[in-house]
């Protein structure tokens, strides 16, 4: 029987992937990879602000990640400067966060826990937050699935069918901020985007429909979580990066030709 902390870690990772799998598929389909990155980087600023104001860390990261995602979405709607604006915003937010943390007197902050996650120290309270957040994201995506998908396939077709692509984009932005807030404890700010993108990208090779790709992303992500935790225990490596490394290994396997379900 594995230790309690290990079971909690596994449950946290599984909860994360339930939301990050389908959302990651949208991030890949819509080429929002960099947006996931930017949102995650900004979360460090959220950590600093939360610690300074003594609000829950998850709340602070959620709010700042959302603000960041909205700023990025607004800028990327204006075309050619979006890429540069993203770079400016993402790294400025990360740097500001790191600087802000250093100003926090009397608070001993283990910053690497927020950058790389500390899944092995997940508490029961964290689990409630993670699963609650993941369930919310999953419900949001399931509710609007066909509309989100139509807007992703072609904005004109969506508009002609009476949908508002901007609203669907906002739904994804919201979901992204929530997932970042949920995931920061597990894999950390620097690796959140990895768990969104890598399992979804690996899933492409096995799927013929969007739904199948989302389901595969969840499944492969969970395998990565369990594999990463096992490796972390066996080789005494940091848990968050080990999970991402496992996901990367799965991605490499998915590249083996002959598996493509086209």
């Amino acid at each position: 029987m594995p230790d309690d902390f290990l079971i909690r870690a596994a449950l946290a990772g599984i909860g994360l992937m339930l939301a990050a799998g389908p959302l990651g598929a949208f991030v890949v389909w819509r080429r929002m990879a960099y947006m996931g990155d930017a949102t995650a980087h900004a979360a460090v600023l959220g950590v600093a602000l939360a610690l300074a104001t003594e609000l829950p860390v998850a709340f602070g990261t959620g709010v700042v990640a959302l603000a960041m995602a909205l700023a990025v979405a607004g800028l990327s709607g204006r075309g050619r400067t979006a890429d540069t604006a993203l770079g400016v915003l993402a790294h400025s937010a990360l740097a500001l966060g790191l600087v802000a943390v250093s100003f926090l007197k009397g608070v001993r902050v283990d910053l690497s826990a927020y950058l790389f996650g500390d899944v092995l120290s997940v508490t029961r309270g964290d689990l409630v937050w993670i699963w609650g957040g993941a369930a919310t994201v999953l419900a949001l995506l399931a509710w609007r699935w066909n509309r989100l998908l139509t807007a992703t396939v072609n904005e004109e077709l969506a508009q002609a069918a009476g949908l508002d692509p901007r609203r669907e984009k906002l739904v994804l932005t919201l979901a992204l901020a929530l997932v970042v807030a949920v995931a920061i404890k597990i894999v950390g700010a620097l690796l959140v985007a990895a768990m969104l993108i890598i399992p979804a990208a690996s899933a492409r090779a096995f799927a013929r429909t969007p739904e199948a790709m989302a389901a595969w992303a969840v499944g492969l992500g969970i395998v990565a979580v369990l594999g990463g935790l096992w490796a972390s225990l066996g080789f005494d490596t940091p848990a968050g990066p080990s999970i991402v490394a496992a996901a990367a290994a799965i991605f490499c396997l998915s590249l083996i030709p002959g598996r493509s379900a086209r």
Binding site: W29, T150, V153, N154, L157, L163, R208, A212
Partner: peptide, 28 residues
């Protein structure tokens, strides 16, 4: 009831989408 046929649809190969599934967007 308008049936709209756009000029050209660029479907990224990274999005797995069968013709059958496409017909159910957004109305099943």
């Amino acid at each position: 009831r308008i049936g709209y046929v756009p000029q050209r649809l660029q479907i990224d190969p990274v999005l797995p989408l069968t013709v059958r599934r496409f017909l159910s967007l957004p109305r099943r």
